[in-house]
Design a protein around this nucleic acid. Sequence first.
DNA 1: GCGATCAGCT
DNA 2: CACAGCTGATCGC
Length: 473
Amino acid sequence: MEKGLISVDRWTEGSQVYFLTHLHLDHTQGLSSAWARGPLFCSRLTAKLFPLKFPGLDLSLIRVLDIGSWHSIFVVSPSSGEKTFVEVSAIDAHHCPGSVMPLFREAFGCLLYTGDFRWEASNERAEIGRNTLVKALKDDVVDILYLDNTYCNPSYAFPSREVAAQQVVDIIASHPDHDVIIGIDSLGKEELLFHISHKLNIKIWVWPERLQTMHLLGFHDIFTTKTSLTRVRAVPRYSFSVDTLESLNTMHPTIGIMPSGLPWVVQPLKGGGSLPGSLFSSYQSKWRATSGTQTEKLKEALGSVDRFHKCIYSVPYSDHSCFTEIEKFLNLVQPSNIRGIVSSSSCYVDPLYYFGHLCRANQPPLRYNQEKRVQHKTVVAAQIKFNVESGRSTKVDRKRRTAEVGILGVHMSKVDALRRARRGAKLAELEILASNVTCIGLNSECIVWLQNTYDGIGCKEYNPFFYLLILDV
DNA sequence: GCGATCAGCT
DNA sequence: CACAGCTGATCGC
């Protein structure tokens, strides 16, 4: 297969055209504000979000792919020097805002790259996605399907996001006097938060950069950075921990909710399928040990909601397709061949293991433009984002550099400050706040307490405490 | 000094 | 374990 034409979610040198499926960090490794390697195709929404994630990026390099419409891209075969074209369309991947599945058609066939995707069957939006895909494919056969195989195992079974969102609403409603902390990422889960806000008629706190994102996505009223306006806060997932929750509970009754597709093994394993025995054992033993029969009662009451800590609920809200959804998707697409995109997981399963029988590799495929197929020898070399284990150097003893002391005694290096600035946090304002802290009502006891708490938890600017005590004074 | 990359962690 | 992500440290330019 000829390399050097097109890369998807891969940013190394050597391609003529680059595609981004969505703006999650693990798909943009290697992409930076200084990007200059070539035209960058993405969805309209991703293009809109780009300046926030990559300020200073040369926007003239961005090419917008509208969902369902076709674009012709001229490329040059590195080997023969021949000019040829690739047609590309985009299907909504329903993973996070702006996420798309690029569909390529060219002389040698048809390729579909799902990126990360969720293929729900039950709602109107999913129906539109399905119709867009059917229309785009027409009579073409997908020769190679690059598949998001994150949950490509029958063990992974979880409900639609609509159902999971209602489970979250039920949990919050059943804790009317509790504060609520929900762990989210920099992009995604907006509809969950919208559902909560809509059903409970409540605003939702998010951190400042996330509010900017929400505004770009068109949400203008339901999100706030003022903690006094709501008891529901969505915080970065990495600042969400048992320690954080326990600390918050020393001040005010607080529950945590983790929306995630990960630890859900609801259905028993069917014949032929097995996961390594250790895969979930530690996770499961954790909540079994701490919650006992209460967990069972809760599971009965709330379906597949689990509680692995007395104040933390885990809800099966996933932005990736579960096994049965992958199956439905494959029944629809019926590709000639499948390649899994996600290979880093220890429970990686080659999609062919479960879905090989759905492939029509033995059938003579009906290809797009048979004539051109004979004339040109170029193929799309979609470079796949494989997390191949590279020979990593052995561990080196690292000396801990003395950290500089920043605002409020929080350890903050220059690197921190830079990263913070890149994320759009207003460092200067925070410093002013800190220097005038007595003027805005925090007494010295409170500051000492804040310093201790802050250092003790080890979370930095996104720590719920931080905004609780500082930004909303 | 800065960006890229790695290791560690959740 | 790791859905996606942050942080600290090192290395090369």
